[in-house]
């Protein structure tokens, strides 16, 4: 890798996160002061936009609600356009502690992987999912680990850092809804190296998770289907 200073971008996707977005921004700024921060506001109807703007970071506004996949992709497009070497996804709901960001960035800076996923299940922290959610996560973990022939413990984690090549790839290809699991399979298919590092995560500080019990069934089916379709797809 070249010696020039690495440009790091923290991408915070936010949809109706007025309860958390302010503290997320200030925490990230405190812990990763060398990075630039953007908030991608996915057509929020509450005070998210106002609070984010007041936080003094760049805020990108989607003209309408486009979903988490498109929101992340907008962030990656911004990163590509502005020449960032590292892009980090940090949820706007406050479940990703800012003091953990350094651990997922490190392997990218050291050129050890193309994408780093922060995992809740590698010993750090004491995250305990509900039985149903835990079972779903285990299924995804098995399926993805089998496909990419490498153990992935936390496939649904949205706490990730991507290097330059990954940023370029994501700018052109990013799954629409519930993108985390599918993105791993796509990356593997394209020959990118995936690395998991242990991180702590919080339970959500406020607001509601996007995954309700009814949606979780749809989520399971959609993601599994998408994975198998991705395997057949030519990209």
């Amino acid at each position: 890798m070249k010696d020039s200073k690495q440009k790091i971008l923290i991408i915070i996707p936010a949809f109706n996160e007025e309860a958390n977005i302010g503290s997320v921004i200030s925490n990230v700024r405190k812990h990763v002061s060398e990075a630039d921060i953007i908030v991608v506001n996915d057509g929020s109807g509450d005070g998210t936009a106002r609070i984010a703007e007041a936080g003094g970071v760049t805020v990108l506004h989607h003209p309408y609600n486009m979903g988490i996949g498109a929101t992340m992709q907008t962030g990656y497009k911004y990163a590509l356009l502005n020449g960032y070497n590292v892009a980090v996804q940090v949820d706007g709901d406050g479940q990703h502690p800012a003091d953990q960001i350094q651990y997922i960035i490190k392997p990218i800076l050291e050129d050890k992987a193309d994408i780093v996923v922060g995992s809740r299940f590698l010993g750090k922290g004491d995250y305990k999912p509900s039985i149903a959610r835990g079972a779903g996560m285990a299924v995804f973990s098995r399926v993805v680990s089998f496909i990419i022939k490498e153990k992935v413990t936390d496939t649904t984690s949205g706490f990730r850092a991507a290097g330059r090549d990954c940023i370029t790839f994501f700018s052109n290809h990013y799954p629409d809804d519930y993108p985390e699991v599918e993105a791993l399979v796509l990356l593997h298919k394209k020959g990118f190296s995936i690395l998991e590092v242990p991180v702590k995560m919080f339970e959500r500080a406020g607001g509601r998770s996007s995954i309700t019990p009814v949606r979780s069934v749809y989520y399971m089916i959609k993601v599994l289907l998408a994975i198998f379709v991705d395997l057949l797809k030519r990209t």
Partner: peptide
């Protein structure tokens, strides 16, 4: 449609950075 909306988002942000705020 998604690509268009993303481009608009990025263009609006770039315009804002150069001092033109089109909030709409």
């Amino acid at each position: 449609n998604k690509v268009l909306a993303q481009e608009i988002t990025l263009i609006k942000s770039a315009l804002k950075e150069s001092g033109i705020d089109i909030k709409g």
